[in-house]
Structure formats: C-alpha cells, structure tokens
C-alpha cells in the first residue's frame, strides 16, 4: 500500500455514507437562516444597518468560526465511528505502520472539513446575496474580501476537522468524541477567558474572525498559527494514542 492509495481509500470512506450530506444539510439550513435574517430581519430600531456597509456584510459572511465547530464535530464523528463500527480493523490491517494510516485518515478528514468550511461560507454568501435585492442595500463586499472569507472558512474547516479527528481517535467513542469536541470548541473557551482574560484573542472563535478579516485582535499569520496549534494538539495526542494503545 502507498500513501496515495490510503488517502483515496479514506476519502472514499467519507463519501460512501450519508454523513457528509447530513452536514451539508445543516450548512444549507444555516445559510437559509442568514438569508432570511437579511431579507426580513431588522435592528432594534427597525433599520437594516447590520447590512449597510461592506464590513457589516463581511461580518455576516464570515463563516470560519462556525466552520471550526461544525467541522470539529464532523472530524470527531468520522474518526470515532471507525472504532465504533470496527472498520478501523481493516484500516490498520492494510497499513500496520499506524502513523501512515493515521496521517491518511487525518488528511482525508481535514480535506472533508475544508470542503464543509468552503461550502458553509459559499452557501451563506449565496443566501445573503439572494436576499439583498429584497432590501435597500446592494452587495458591498469586494471580491478580495469574499475570497478571504472563503479561504478562511476552508482553513478553519480543515483545522476544526483535524481537531475533531484527533479527539475521535483518542476517545474512540462517537458520543464521547462529540461531547469532547463541543467542550473544546464551545464550552471551554468562555471559561478559559473568564479565568484568564488575556486569552480572549486566542480562542478559536476570536481567531476565526481574524483570519476572516473581520477583526484584528492579532495578526493574521499569528491567528493561522494559533488555529493550527489548536488542531495540532489533539492530532498529536491521537498519534501517541494510536501507537500506545491496542487498536481493538
């Protein structure tokens, strides 16, 4: 077996069940909610100032934070279900050098997360674009800004999926992995900020705003590295776990 075969096999795993479609359905619903909000929603004063400038619209488009969380769940389920269904046996029989198999799996999950992030941002932008003609405002964001949102969301999706995939390989139980991903990405960050307010710029949601071009609490490169670090820690734990523990 070679790495390309393993990667293609892992990608096939992701595309031969209904899970990706379920996630795409969730992204479509979220985009529809955004589009509906633009079409009929107002600010407290009855105006539509929340879409009145390019910056406002970019804030609406910025999907990277959601991509991190949604792809995190995707990665956690994709990795943990391999253990739940025992399909992990075939994986490690094909590639008994475990780090090679894990690398292929995490790469596939990361690519899946990137696609989800891209789709999430694209659907959101599309839904808002469709709704804007129903308001007095046009599409104000520049092509460069839209591109940054799409790239940021793809990157965040990939990172989130790898983070979730790492958790899934460590926990090895779908329910437990999903819970751990939710704790890591949603519940723990606010608690960490309460304990140490200086960390506010470094939690995933804040970093996602930076890479999307919506906030500048840190530099973009620093934010990219920080998001990558959030993903790398569970991935490295997974590598340790997969070598340290029996597969079944």
């Amino acid at each position: 077996m070679n790495s390309t075969d393993l990667l293609r096999s892992e990608l096939r795993k992701l595309t031969t069940t209904r899970m990706p479609l379920s996630f795409l359905a969730v992204l479509t619903v979220l985009a529809a909610i955004n589009g509906t909000a633009v079409a009929i929603g107002t600010d407290m004063d009855g105006s539509k100032t929340f879409i009145s400038t390019a910056a406002d619209q970019i804030s609406l488009f910025a999907f990277a934070g959601n991509a991190l969380m949604i792809a995190g769940l995707f990665g956690a389920i994709a990795a943990a279900r391999e253990f739940g269904h025992n399909t992990v046996i075939a994986t490690y029989l094909a590639a008994p050098r475990r780090s090679k198999a894990l690398l292929a799996q995490m790469t596939a999950i990361g690519l899946g997360g990137a696609v989800l992030g891209l789709a999430g941002a694209g659907l959101t932008i599309g839904a808002v674009a469709i709704s804007l003609p129903m308001t007095n405002y046009g599409f104000l964001a520049s092509l460069g800004e839209v591109a940054q949102v799409l790239v940021a969301s793809s990157f965040a999706g990939a990172a989130g999926a790898i983070l979730g995939g790492g958790i899934g390989n460590v926990i090895r139980n779908t329910g437990g992995a999903v819970t751990a991903a939710v704790v890591t990405l949603i519940i723990a960050p606010p608690l960490i900020i309460q304990l140490a307010s200086g960390t506010a710029s470094w939690v995933p949601s804040a970093l996602a705003l930076v890479v999307s071009g919506v906030a500048d609490t840190t530099g973009v490169v620093s934010a990219i590295l920080a998001i990558a670090s959030w993903a790398a820690v569970p991935a490295l734990l997974a590598l340790w776990s997969i070598h340290r523990q029996d597969i079944v």
Partner: peptide
C-alpha cells in the same frame, strides 16, 4: 460486524481494495 451499516457491501470492499492497492 466490522462494517459501517450505511455503506454498501461493494463500497466496503472497494475501500479495502483501494487501501491495499
């Protein structure tokens, strides 16, 4: 029972065939 229940039998084999060349 080492299968994903939502995957077809053929896809299961194709995945293994792909991984093992």
């Amino acid at each position: 029972n080492a299968f994903h229940p939502g995957r077809t039998g053929r896809d299961h084999l194709c995945i293994i065939a792909q991984a093992t060349g």
